[in-house]
């Protein structure tokens, strides 16, 4: 293993004009200058404005997906949840569903899902409307939301009922069914502290072994 490692290092740094490894003796100046020239050329190709201008713009290479998730309280029933989306000057209507017809949606779990695919937009102007069963359409959220990722942006909302009985959609990082939201949010903290506890036990055991050895 040691011989293989040394051979690998020798083959990596060996220069045709310098038979020895750079690890055992100073590298020749010709080798250093060739390396410097190679690095300079790579830097120019990677970082120059001109080099960048010849490639297709990054924001048009792949379509951008914006995924909307809205978690509804179990006691509320909505006949439809829609998002009126303004994206790059065009107006689109996105219907959110909870019947499993959109991939990734779990049917009847209280989380409505919808997607819109289009060209890259740094932000969108959206209006979230919900129509309760037998009621009028309510405006739950209106505003500009940043969508910076060029691949996938997940925009989550949690519907909360205010004291006066009105409903508001509050931004959340993801949407889970109402009865699991708090548990899912706590899961990250539990995992972190669990990992810490594991490390505490392991290192504590190592320390006790060490101290036993020192005392002997």
């Amino acid at each position: 293993m040691k011989a293989f490692r040394q051979a690998s290092i020798h083959s990596f740094v060996r220069s045709p004009t310098d038979p020895g490894s750079c690890l055992r003796r100073p590298c020749s100046s010709s080798h250093r200058s060739r390396l410097a020239a190679l690095l300079a050329m790579l830097s120019f190709l990677l970082f120059s404005r001109e080099g960048r201008a010849t490639t297709e713009p990054l924001d048009s290479q792949v379509p951008q997906v914006i995924e909307f998730q809205v978690a509804i309280p179990r006691e509320k029933a909505f006949s439809s949840i829609t998002i009126e989306l303004e994206r790059l000057g065009g107006i689109h209507l996105v219907e959110l569903v909870d019947d499993g017809s959109v991939s990734g949606d779990m049917p009847w779990d209280g989380v409505y899902l919808g997607r819109h695919v289009g060209e890259y937009a740094r932000y969108v102007n959206l209006r979230l409307r919900g129509k309760p069963a037998g009621g009028e359409s309510l405006l739950l959220f209106a505003g500009v939301v940043a969508t910076p990722d060029r691949h996938l942006n997940e925009i989550g909302f949690q519907l909360v009922e205010r004291r006066e009985g009105s409903l508001d959609a509050v931004r959340s990082s993801f949407a889970y069914p109402d009865n699991r939201m708090a548990a899912v949010k706590s899961l990250y903290l539990l995992a972190g502290f669990g990992w810490g506890l594991l490390l505490l036990c392991y290192v504590g055991w190592l320390v006790s072994l060490h101290r036993k050895g020192t005392d002997k």
Binding site: K185, G192, L199, V203
Partner: peptide, 27 residues
Amino acid sequence: ASMAAWTPDADLQNHSSTPLLGFTVLV
């Protein structure tokens, strides 16, 4: 909690301020 573990809400609501200490070096 922000020094112990991150949650997705931290990126949305706390400006990604999650200065995790790293349990290995802490312990």
